[in-house]
Every structure is written in C-alpha cells, then in structure tokens.
C-alpha cells in the first residue's frame, strides 16, 4: 500500500498530520515537542510519538492529532499542566517530549 493509498484510506488521520507538517514549515508555526514550547497558550497537537502504550494511553485521555490544548503551567524540567477537552491533565517530561504541537495564536 502506498502513502497515497493510505492517505486516501485514512484521510482523516493522515490529513491532519500532513496539514500540521505543511504549515509547520513556517517558523512562526513551527512544530515542536510540548516540552520545548516556551510560552503558555493554545496549541494544536500534530503527532504523538514514543512508546506504543503511551500513545494509546494519551489517545484515551483525548490527546490525538488535530486536538487543541491549552498549556497552563510549564516547568523548567519540561513537566506541564494543560487543559484538554474540558479536563486538566498533568504530564511529565517523557510524555510532553512525545507530543508534537504547534502554536495557534
């Protein structure tokens, strides 16, 4: 199966990732791990990387490509608290390193 075919099949998922990657070429909309984001505010999730179980766990908590989050607190060691889908979730550096986001403000 080619990427084209997959893109057609999973248009929903692949489309969101591709959209993120395309817009991310602009410096202002750069995609970076949540842990590297220097300022609070709204972000859009582009991709979840890392361990397979972590990805699935994050998905069950609402973290999936295309979803918007609000970064509330960020600490120097990359741990953070953010709002997602009306809930507040705290993440350590491993989790926040694996969430690729872009600013939407």
């Amino acid at each position: 199966m080619t990427f084209k075919q997959l893109n057609h099949t999973y248009c929903c998922f692949a489309g969101k990732v591709r959209k993120c990657l395309r817009t991310g070429r602009n410096d202002a909309e750069k995609i970076m791990p949540l842990s590297k984001i220097g300022h609070h505010g709204r972000k859009r999730i582009c991709k979840i990387t890392g361990d397979r179980k972590l990805c699935a766990r994050m998905a069950s908590l609402g973290f999936h490509p295309g979803e918007e989050v609000e970064l509330l607190c960020r600490e120097n060691d990359s741990r953070c608290i953010l709002k997602i889908q009306g809930g507040t979730v705290s993440l350590d550096n491993t989790a926040s390193n694996n969430i690729l986001v872009q600013s939407i403000e």
């Binding site: 990427f3 997959l6 999973y10 692949a14 990805c55 999936h64 490509p65």
Partner: peptide
C-alpha cells in the same frame, strides 16, 4: 508508511 501504530488510527476514528 505512516509512522503510526493501528491503535492511533483506531483512536482517531473513534474521536
């Protein structure tokens, strides 16, 4: 091809 596992696609379709 997409650098994702099936569960990511399943979760995406559920959402």
């Amino acid at each position: 091809t997409m650098d994702v596992f099936p569960e990511a696609i399943i979760a995406d379709h559920r959402y």
